[in-house]
């Protein structure tokens, strides 16, 4: 019998070429047999053979390409994680990921969007190192997402001087609109340092996993290049509150609480430097507004 139902043939071929155990297992699996009951022994009732290749061998070209291509693409999104784990281990993680989260998008840019979640879901309970891998994957996903997402490059930049032009009596009510490309992360492991270290080290040199040490990171973009910033806890808290839309006064209260136990911080002095630096980087703030929401820059 020749199979000529387009929908069944497509669903069958999809089930066969995406089966993790290969074409024979895919063709014999219930999912494929419910669509076209050929099985591996009768593949040539559906797919023609050539002089040199059987139907199974021809289908395997698509089957091999499916995982190979998508594993390669995922590796481009998480290059430091791939190098940290080694290609074989990394590919094994992605192989599992693709079975649980096959692409449902028209674009490869969405391919890795559930990878961090997948690593968290499959995290071994007694393995602390997995938190490091999850943190590193989070960092790399945010970098990837920021690179091609919205930014401030086409907009008028926020100037620190515009803040100084506002009556200080109104500062506590000011709200900062943070840059759409600004991402704030807090991690259990120093993954930002690890990221820098791996990228600056010859590929032949193995870099050990770091020990746990909390890290606060800002990721943003300027001139279309992604930038990474190490943040102190008070800086992280302040920016997080501002990003949530809280007025400066509320954000500063939270920041002061976070700075209480850090003798190296003198808020009265440091705040001016922080805002001056963040403004000069042109990747933290889009504009500021008062209670009336009128824009100052």
């Amino acid at each position: 019998m020749k199979h000529n139902d387009l929908d069944r043939v497509q669903r069958w071929m999809h089930a066969v070429i995406t089966h993790p155990d290969g074409i024979v297992a895919g063709a014999d699996a219930d999912k494929a047999r419910e669509l076209l009951d050929a099985g591996a022994g009768n593949l040539e009732s559906i797919v023609t053979r050539s002089t040199h290749l059987t139907a199974a061998e021809r289908l395997a070209i698509y089957g091999n390409a499916y995982y190979s291509r998508l594993i390669d693409c995922t590796g481009e999104v998480f290059p430091v994680l791939k190098r940290t784990l080694g290609e074989e281990v990394f590919n094994g993680f992605v192989f599992g990921y693709l079975q649980n989260y096959p692409s449902t998008s028209y674009t490869l840019h969405h391919l890795g969007r559930n990878f961090v979640g997948y690593l968290s879901e499959t995290r071994p309970e007694d393995a602390q190192w997995s938190d490091f891998l999850i943190d590193l994957a989070r960092l790399e996903w945010e970098i990837y997402d920021v690179f091609d997402g919205p930014g401030l490059e086409e907009k008028e930049s926020f100037e620190f001087e515009s803040l100084l032009e506002i009556d200080p009596a109104r500062w506590l009510n000011l709200r900062f609109k943070t840059a759409p490309c600004l991402r704030l992360l807090t991690t259990k492991y120093p993954v930002n340092n690890h990221y820098t270290l791996v990228r600056g080290t010859d590929e032949a040199i193995e870099i050990p996993f770091p020990g746990p040490e909390p890290e606060n990171i800002a990721i943003s973009r300027r001139d279309y290049v992604v930038r990474r910033y190490h943040l102190s806890l008070p800086q992280y808290v302040l920016l997080t509150e501002l990003q949530k839309g809280e007025p400066l006064g509320i954000a500063l209260e939270s920041c002061a609480d976070a700075a209480q136990n850090d003798p190296s911080i003198n808020l009265e002095h440091d705040l001016t430097n922080w805002f001056s630096y963040w403004s000069s980087e042109q990747s933290f703030f889009e504009n500021i507004s008062g209670e009336s929401e009128s824009q100052f820059s």
């Binding site: 390409a65 291509r69 390669d72 490869l108 690179f147």
Partner: peptide
Amino acid sequence: VPHPLHHNKVEVQ
């Protein structure tokens, strides 16, 4: 394997 579909490369500092 058949040619990979093209993918943008990230630029990061």
